[in-house]
C-alpha cells in the first residue's frame, strides 16, 4: 500500500479522512453527497480531485485473502476493477467484463462468483478469496499443483478463474463424473483449448479426496 511520506497514512486512509473532514465542514454538499449532481458540481467548481474522490466514494470493508481492508470505492466500481486497479491483485483476470467468460471468478463467502458483475460496494463485510489467496505461502493448493501436472493451461490468462471455479466445483458436489465437471465448468472459457487437461486436473483432485 502506498503510504504518504509526510503523514505516514495510506492513500485509502487519507481519502477516507478527507471525505469525513470535507463532509463535516461543508453542510450544503453533505445533503446531496454521493449523488452524481454533487460530483459534477464539485468538478465545475474546481474543488479538486481529492475532494471529488471523497465525494464520489463510499467506505467498504472487505476481507481479502484473510486480510481486512477498508477501501473507498465508487458505487459503480466492480469488485474486479477494485481488485485489479486499486489493490493490484491482478491474478483475477478481465476477459470480457460482461459475465460471459469466467476469467474473473473469485470466491465470495466461499461461493464462486463473477467479480466483473459484482459491485464492490455490495460486498461490504464479505470474505473474498482470489487466486493469490489460494496457496498457503509457498505451498501450492492441490488444484494449482494438478493444473501444472496435467498442463491445464497454455497462455495462462483464464487459469486463475478456472482454478477458482474448479475448487468450488468440487466443493459444490458438481464434480462427480467427467460429464458433470464439463457442464459445471462451462462458465470458464479457455480459448487456448486446455479443457481436457483441466478436467483431468479436477478429477485428480476430486479423487485425491483432500479437503480443499
Amino acid at each position: 500500500m502506498n503510504k504518504n511520506k509526510t503523514t505516514g497514512k495510506s492513500e485509502e486512509e487519507e481519502n477516507h479522512e478527507s471525505r469525513r473532514d470535507f463532509l463535516k465542514t461543508t453542510s450544503i454538499l453533505t445533503a446531496i453527497a454521493v449523488s452524481p449532481v454533487a460530483v459534477s458540481k464539485a468538478a465545475e467548481y474546481n474543488l479538486g480531485e481529492k475532494i471529488n474522490h471523497a465525494l464520489e466514494t463510499t467506505p467498504v470493508n472487505l476481507t481479502i485473502n484473510g486480510i481486512k481492508k477498508q477501501l473507498a470505492v465508487e458505487p459503480r466500481s466492480t469488485l474486479l476493477d477494485v481488485l485489479r486497479e486499486q489493490l493490484n491483485l491482478t491474478g483475477t483476470k478481465k476477459g470480457c467484463d460482461y459475465g460471459q467468460c469466467g476469467a474473473c471468478t473469485v470466491h465470495v463467502n466461499g461461493q464462486r462468483v463473477l467479480s466483473c458483475l459484482s459491485l464492490a460496494i455490495m460486498q461490504d463485510g464479505k470474505q473474498v478469496t482470489t487466486i493469490e489467496g489460494l496457496s498457503k505461502g509457498d505451498e501450492l493448493h492441490p488444484m494449482q499443483q494438478a493444473f501444472i501436472k496435467h498442463d491445464g493451461f497454455q497462455c495462462g490468462y483464464c487459469t486463475p478463474g478456472q482454478i477458482m471455479s474448479a475448487v468450488a466445483c468440487i466443493n459444490e458436489g458438481h464434480a462427480e463424473n467427467k460429464e458433470d465437471i464439463k457442464e459445471f465448468m462451462s462458465g470458464n472459457i479457455c480459448r487456448c483449448g486446455a479443457y481436457p487437461n483441466i478436467v483431468k486436473a479436477i478429477q485428480e483432485v476430486k479423487n485425491g479426496g483432500q479437503k480443499i
Binding site: R84, N88, L89, T90, G91, T92, K93, K94, T130, I131, E132, L134, S135, L140, Q144, F147, I148, K149, D151, F153, G156, Y157, T159, P160, I163
Partner: peptide, 21 residues
C-alpha cells in the same frame, strides 16, 4: 517437462500487459 512458467500462471503472479503499476 512441466511448463517452466506454470507456477507463475497458477498463482496469478504472471503479469500481462495491463498489469504493470
Amino acid at each position: 517437462l512441466d511448463r517452466v512458467d506454470g507456477r507463475m500462471k497458477v498463482t496469478g503472479a504472471a503479469r500481462y500487459s495491463a498489469e504493470y503499476t
